[in-house]
Simulated assay, not measured.
Amino acid sequence: MATVTLGGNAIHTSGELPTVGSKSPDFKLIKNDLGEASLSDFSGSKLVLNIFPSIDTGTCATSVREFNAKASQLENTKVLCISRDLPFAQKRFCGAEGLENVINLSDFNTGKFGKDFGLEITDGPLAGLHSRVVIVLDENGVVKYTEQVSEIADEPNYESALASL
């Protein structure tokens, strides 16, 4: 279990993030068209997993915008924006913002992704949502970088995440 803060108040996650050098857990998440996506669907591409509580908060929206701007410059890299938001909300946000360089995926139906990656918030007002995390995977699904943002309202370190690619 990790401890992070929300407005300076301690909250906890369901476990620990995958360790650098380990193979990423597989996942099944829901795409905007309600189809399923799994880790194997992105085989051969580097992945930036931008994980957050909800697209409808300022910091989460900013992280999606930032990674969208940077994603177009990345070679053989896909940015997956993952939350428990409904796929409809993710699609609405990216459509309204004109964001086309990120892939939104939802863990709304089971929450299994958050549990398997040890980042589900287990207490406090955001219990059941994902904590703010960035995980970078190489082309073979090996973890190259992780960041558990210590204060949920803070943005991730974009430069460090992208430098790990």
Rank of each mutant, 00 (worst) to 15 (best):
T3V: 15
V4F: 01
G8W: 05
G8E: 08
G8M: 07
I11S: 01
T13F: 06
S14F: 04
V20I: 14
S22M: 02
K23Y: 01
S24K: 11
D26M: 06
K28Y: 08
K28W: 01
K28L: 13
K31E: 02
N32F: 03
D33Q: 11
G35D: 11
D41M: 03
S43N: 12
G44P: 07
K46H: 11
K46V: 01
K46R: 13
L47K: 06
N50E: 13
I51N: 06
F52M: 08
F52C: 08
S54L: 11
I55G: 03
I55A: 14
D56L: 09
D56F: 00
D56T: 07
T57A: 10
G58H: 05
T59P: 00
T59W: 01
A61H: 02
A61P: 04
R65E: 07
R65H: 09
F67A: 07
A69C: 00
A71V: 03
E75K: 15
N76C: 04
L80F: 10
L80Y: 10
R84I: 13
D85Q: 03
F88H: 12
Q90G: 09
K91M: 12
F93V: 10
C94V: 14
A96Y: 06
E97A: 15
G98D: 09
L99K: 11
E100K: 15
E100G: 13
F108D: 07
F108Q: 04
F108Y: 15
T110D: 14
K112A: 15
G114P: 11
K115A: 14
F117E: 06
G118Q: 05
E120G: 00
I121T: 08
T122C: 02
L126T: 02
S131A: 15
V133W: 00
E139S: 15
N140P: 03
K144F: 00
E147M: 05
E151P: 09
D154T: 02
D154W: 01
D154H: 14
P156S: 12
P156M: 13
N157V: 05
Y158Q: 05
S160E: 15
A161V: 09
